[in-house]
Design a protein around this nucleic acid. Sequence first.
DNA 1: GTAGATGCAAAACCTTTGCATTTTG
DNA 2: CAAAATGCAAAGGTTTTGCATCTAC
Lengths: 149, 149
Amino acid sequence: MTTRPGIEATGPLIEAIAAAGERVTLPRRAVARLVAARDGHFTAAQLIDDAGAAGEPIGRATIFRALDLFATLGLVERLDLPDGNHAFVACEPVHHHHAICTRCGRSTDIADGALSDVLTAIGRQAGFRVTAHRLEVFGLCADCGVAGS
Amino acid sequence: MTTRPGIEATGPLIEAIAAAGERVTLPRRAVARLVAARDGHFTAAQLIDDAGAAGEPIGRATIFRALDLFATLGLVERLDLPDGNHAFVACEPVHHHHAICTRCGRSTDIADGALSDVLTAIGRQAGFRVTAHRLEVFGLCADCGVAGS
DNA sequence: GTAGATGCAAAACCTTTGCATTTTG
DNA sequence: CAAAATGCAAAGGTTTTGCATCTAC
């Protein structure tokens, strides 16, 4: 390999950052890696812990800023847990929602499917022009639903 | 009027509190009044301001506690704005959702309608047993949609 | 080389909590 | 009268901010 960087630890997140014309910095790479390593949703605090555990010397502020950037770019979504805490989930840049398992905490992507249409119809009835919606589904995932007593 | 209280400033909220066997205190009445006076959604901070403006000598803690009680009783719902802030809306104790106008901030109740079914179906596809869902719809209400340029 | 990102630590924020006092039922 | 709610103020945790320094482009 030549001295040209960018070919090394490149992932979808990093590519998206570069594509958006944002600077690809070491800390951002690290955060992207940590996010990618996460399975379900995670709080900022958890990511900060992860960073510490992974030996990444990243400041809390930087993590918040990176998460904020990712959210702006649509690479992660901010969501709110039933207990009132904020969390994030990595996500594909296509519109969809998350089904969060109340047992194991993992989140499964669910397609928007017929939802948009249903919403538009419901909105129309109420004289409402729907421009955006946010859905959070809670329940038991396949594993927990079966395993659960 | 006799000395029998309860007939005075009684509202739906107060009645529900009494019906639930919770104590009907002056501060709770005040908070109920403030909530009823609100049209759309409101944050705890706003209610606290309202209280101050209305000359109600209620402590912040009490407002948070009252709001919490109301939420537990299903008289108000906690919701999360796109900007990550928490808010509340007064609501009927039947399952439904809120359509929040991004222009005037008012919220319109929308029936759950076919949503539950759609969700159950979607969830089934993903092997997910849906036990709860939370939907927040954003857009323009009838007034703003028409008036809007 | 320059605009932008980082780190640190302090500040700001919102929400909860403890305890003596007051109120409700 | 006893149990529960209130108020105050301080604690708690989370997120943001300022500024000097460093890095990516």
